[in-house]
């Protein structure tokens, strides 16, 4: 029964556009975006929650997937070719940069990934050869398949985003249950011990880093199809920080927590931007609200939404115990 529950949920999500309430293109587009970020956050959790690597440069691979897809399509490549090349580039860059960054551990690794990703942000902002469009971003000018163009076909974009999320979750599930996945969780818990057992933590970490980079690049491709273009925000360190916030809110290392956190965060971010502008002072800033919620979550709900069934009753019981 439990085995089929995720597939049942995926089916419900797939059938969602047939419900009246969700069939408006605006709603479907927002939901598609939520699904893309759900997949992206889940992919980031492969590094953070499952391998214990705190990367601050994940946005780089997302941006590579997004920008290369747009640029290649605008230069006359068909979508499948452009997507494939974009993802391959993501893999190659992740392998090269990961090989250097993983030479240091812990917080130093975080700083180095941050620095590498900054190069991506600088290149995107400088607009080399008019390719990335600088501040303006780049939009897909040609080559969109007919099935993905127009308001009527928003539902296809939604299904595409859902397919991406399912692919990410299936890959993560497979990896988690494979011997390599067990090594990854062992590295997260105690890398030195893995070394003593005769395995090379470096190789497994690099594998995890490259796989996460590939999933992020794929996410970038899906993102530009949903949104219609890429903007410099995709390459910024803020994007990685929000991914981290999503994962921590959802529950790092859990099966569905990061995806749930990603979807919920994206949804709230957009809804707050729409409705909160009338609120007084800092409450009108979505990032202020979400940042404060995030800080509170780190203190009071470790394990995020995935463990709220354990942490919340604990908090509710506590005052009662003090009275006794």
């Amino acid at each position: 029964m439990r085995r089929w529950l995720p597939w049942g949920l995926a089916l419900v999500l797939a059938l969602l556009p047939f419900g009246q309430a969700f069939n408006a293109p605006g709603t479907l587009n927002l939901l598609a975006l939520c699904l893309v970020f759900a997949g992206l956050a889940a992919g980031y959790d492969l590094l953070f929650g499952r391998t214990g690597l705190l990367s601050f440069g994940h946005a780089l691979y997302f941006a590579i997937g997004a920008y290369l897809t747009v640029i290649l399509m605008n230069h006359g490549f068909a979508l499948p070719v452009a997507a494939l090349l974009a993802i391959l580039s993501g893999v190659v860059v992740a392998a090269l940069l990961g090989a250097v960054a993983l030479r240091v551990d812990g917080i130093a690794f975080s700083m180095v990934t941050l620095a590498f990703a900054q190069v991506g942000a600088i290149i995107v902002a400088r607009d080399p050869g008019g390719l990335t469009g600088g501040e303006e971003g780049a939009t897909i000018a040609k080559g969109m398949p007919d099935a993905l163009v127009g308001v009527v076909n928003t539902v296809n974009l939604y299904w595409l985003a859902l397919a991406y999320l399912v692919v990410v979750l299936v890959v993560l599930h497979r990896v988690g249950r494979s011997p390599a996945g067990r090594v990854l969780s062992a590295i997260r818990d105690d890398a030195r011990r893995v070394g003593v057992l005769g395995l090379s933590p470096y190789r497994y970490k690099l594998m995890s880093f490259v796989l996460a980079g590939a999933l992020a690049a794929l996410g970038g491709t899906v993102y530009v199809l949903v949104v219609g273009g890429a903007s410099p925000h995709l390459a910024s360190s803020d994007l990685t920080l929000t991914l981290l916030v999503m994962v921590v809110l959802g529950g790092p290392g859990s099966r569905f927590g990061p995806a749930l956190g990603g979807a919920l965060f994206t949804f709230l971010d957009y809804q707050l931007t729409d409705y909160a502008t009338d609120l007084p002072g800092p409450l009108a800033q979505p990032m202020f609200v979400l940042g404060v919620v995030f800080i509170l979550a780190v203190y009071f709900f470790p394990g995020g939404l995935a463990r709220i069934g354990v942490t919340l009753p604990g908090w509710l019981r506590r005052p009662a115990r003090q009275e006794a």
């Binding site: 916030v245 002072g281 800092p282 800033q285 990032m287 940042g291």
Partner: peptide
Amino acid sequence: LYRRTIEQVLVTVGLSLAGVALLQSV
């Protein structure tokens, strides 16, 4: 959060996001 390095980083990340937004609103 003494000795819980990752949580400390997370809190400062949240603080930097919320803090910049706060400065922006003021």
